[in-house]
């Protein structure tokens, strides 16, 4: 008879010991909100499940001068309510607050969301726009960093080896940058993104953009960093004209990405809404939204 074994390490040391013998039938279980559905649907009934939830030492949100550090089992609710995240990684606060329902956010973890690597994962889009890295531990006890972008392969695939676990997410702090996230689904709340986007802007006192990062999610197997859109915004002054340019280049980007797909006509229009939402949130004094169009 097939057998599932659950191991619940309580320290990193125990985790490493378990990881050392991980094989192809080893599964990482964090909040469980995606995994348990998958496990039942795909009828996974043998192997080892490593329950990460008892690694209490991985439940934290702190910051140094350079980084916001989020422990691997920290829940999305905890992140969305964190003043540290709000201050230094606004896009992540906004994204975590919009994932699933209250119950889902209470269980789901940021590390789990990254590892799950769904094309529409809201947090991944935000983390990419924040140039976030993850800290990984492996079965040899080695700890190293990788970019979120490198972990997420998309279409629910990640690049983690079978003995690797995300133990921390690191978001660089840049006091001159501001970020924001937006999503569009079928409902106001509890909805899978049809489209999501996160941006990080740096601008001078004259409101001229000198650095930009624009990440668009749910229009491909994974969120992608659009340098085309970002570059088009460089050296532009953030004013009422700016949004038209932003929307226009986003539309071109969507055309480039998914032209010919059934979802294209909708997404090329709807992305304007995302741009408008984000700009309104970031620059309420300038952007009065659609009233201009």
């Amino acid at each position: 008879m097939n057998e599932i074994v659950i191991k619940s390490p309580t320290t990193l040391k125990e985790l490493v010991q378990i990881l050392a013998v991980a094989d192809n039938n080893t599964y990482m279980l964090s909040g469980g909100t995606d995994f348990i559905i998958k496990m039942r649907r795909e009828k996974i009934n043998n192997g080892t499940i490593i329950n990460l939830k008892d690694l209490k030492e991985l439940n934290y949100i702190t910051n140094t001068e350079d980084y916001v550090k989020i422990g691997g089992i920290t829940t999305l609710t905890e992140i969305s309510c964190s003043s540290i995240v709000d201050k230094y990684a606004t896009a992540l606060k906004e994204a975590t607050g919009k994932v699933g329902s209250t119950q889902i956010r209470n269980a789901a973890t940021l590390a789990g969301n990254i590892a799950n690597s769904a094309p529409c994962a809201d947090t991944v889009t935000a983390l990419m726009a924040l140039s976030a890295k993850v800290k990984i531990i492996n079965g040899s006890g080695e700890i190293y960093e990788k970019k979120v972008d490198d972990i997420v392969l998309g279409s629910e695939k990640n690049s983690l080896k079978r003995d690797e676990v995300i133990i921390e997410v690191n978001i660089p702090i840049d006091l001159e940058a501001r970020s924001s996230f937006g999503k569009i689904g079928s409902r106001t709340a509890v909805t899978i993104s049809k489209l999501n986007m996160a941006v990080t802007f740096k601008y001078n006192h004259e409101m001229v953009i000198n650095e930009a990062m624009v990440v668009i999610g749910a229009i491909g197997p994974k969120a992608f960093n659009s340098s085309t859109v970002a570059n088009s915004l460089l050296n532009k002054k953030i004013n009422t004209q700016f949004i038209y340019l932003f929307e226009e280049t986003l539309q071109k980007q969507v055309d480039e990405a998914i032209l010919g797909r059934a979802s294209h006509p909708y997404k090329r229009e709807a992305i304007r809404g995302l741009a408008d939402d984000i700009m309104k949130r970031m620059f309420p004094q300038i952007m009065t939204g659609g009233e201009l169009s």
Partner: peptide, 8 residues
Amino acid sequence: DTYTGLVR
């Protein structure tokens, strides 16, 4: 929302 087509 004439940008996204969502109706409230």
